[in-house]
């Protein structure tokens, strides 16, 4: 393993107010990059993929590192909350265990001390491990710009590899998750080259709960990572499970649909064909284990 080159030169600015961030983004355009944990940003800068003149540290803005839970409004996670902070937060563990599980699946312990939820989503890698969880929990991203705040649903946020619905001088402040039904179950299964500590080859998150308004009596939501240009929901697979009663047969059919939704690429970690087969296998397995909890 060869060490990467040193970081190219830039100016570091620690932002204290949201307005300051917006002003710097307006002033410098593409020349400015926002910094939280730097675990994506600095690697890309060392690799020469990007060369910002100014790096704006946004993790010290008010509220960026706080987690708030309310029974009525749900969970609000500041964009700069780290993976470890999220994974060990008691209310996240109790009410949103799927999110804690996804956060804990990222990289290594020391990377998770710096890597943030917001950075993972803004980086918009197809392999972002928290994306499937945020998608199936129907998270909303709180974006700040000179026009104030707006919210974008996670399902509309990812637009391509490294591409998001964020506008030029917008930044992510927080992620909001709605309150969950009284009974629910969720699981994230990540296949990497190693058991832990690696980027996912395929990631599948399932979140399910009973719902009398649905023909099958249950809502199943399925989120996929590393199998398409963006993290995505497997809508057709979800539709199968809304209309067929839960069980081996419908899970197999849904897994087939999830595989069809996947449009992966060949890369150093796995071939496209292997990934597709794994989407089917993992989806089936996760559906089974989530159902065991709900049944």
């Amino acid at each position: 393993m060869l060490a990467r080159p040193a970081l190219p030169s830039f100016d570091y600015v620690r932002a204290n107010t949201p307005d300051e961030v917006v002003r710097l983004l307006q002033e410098h355009g593409q020349g400015a990059r926002l910094l939280m944990g730097g675990t994506d940003l600095f690697v890309r800068m060392r690799d020469g993929v990007i060369r910002p003149q100014i790096v704006v540290d946004v993790k010290h803005l008010p509220g960026m590192r706080s987690i708030e839970y309310d029974e009525v409004t749900g969970l609000t996670v500041g964009a700069a909350v780290t993976m470890n902070q999220l994974a060990r937060h008691p209310q996240v563990q109790t009410h949103y265990p799927l999110l804690a599980e996804a956060a804990n699946s990222v990289a290594s312990y020391q990377v998770r001390n710096r890597a943030t939820l917001g950075g993972n989503l803004c980086n918009a890698s197809p392999a972002a491990d928290t994306a499937p969880a945020v998608l199936v929990l129907e998270g909303r991203l709180v974006l700040h710009s000179s026009q104030g705040e707006r919210e974008v649903a996670a399902r509309d946020f990812f637009t391509g590899p490294g591409q998001t619905a964020m506008r030029e001088n917008e930044f992510l402040k927080a992620v909001r998750l709605p309150p969950l039904p009284a009974v629910s179950a969720g699981k994230y299964l990540k296949l990497g080259r190693n058991k832990v500590g690696d980027l996912s080859i395929v990631g599948v998150a399932v979140f399910a709960f009973p719902d009398g308004t649905v023909p099958s009596g249950y809502v199943f939501r399925i989120g996929l990572a590393s199998v398409a240009p963006v993290p995505l929901r497997a809508w057709e697979a979800e539709e199968v499970l809304a209309t067929h009663s839960p069980g081996e047969e419908s899970f197999a059919l849904a897994a087939e649909k999830a595989m069809e939704a996947a449009t992966p690429i060949d890369d150093v970690r796995a071939s496209a064909a292997y990934r597709k087969a794994m989407v089917r296998a993992l989806t089936r397995r996760v559906l089974g284990s989530v159902w065991e909890v709900l049944e």
Binding site: V43, A107, Q110, N113
Partner: peptide, 28 residues
């Protein structure tokens, strides 16, 4: 300094008691 990319952990130090990769954190 093993990799300068967060992968090898040779640069791990404690910051306020928690381990981090010092190759991916700025001195400032």
């Amino acid at each position: 300094n093993g990799c300068s990319a967060g992968e090898c952990g040779a640069c791990t130090v404690l910051v306020d008691g928690e381990p981090v990769n010092s190759c991916l954190m700025l001195a400032v």
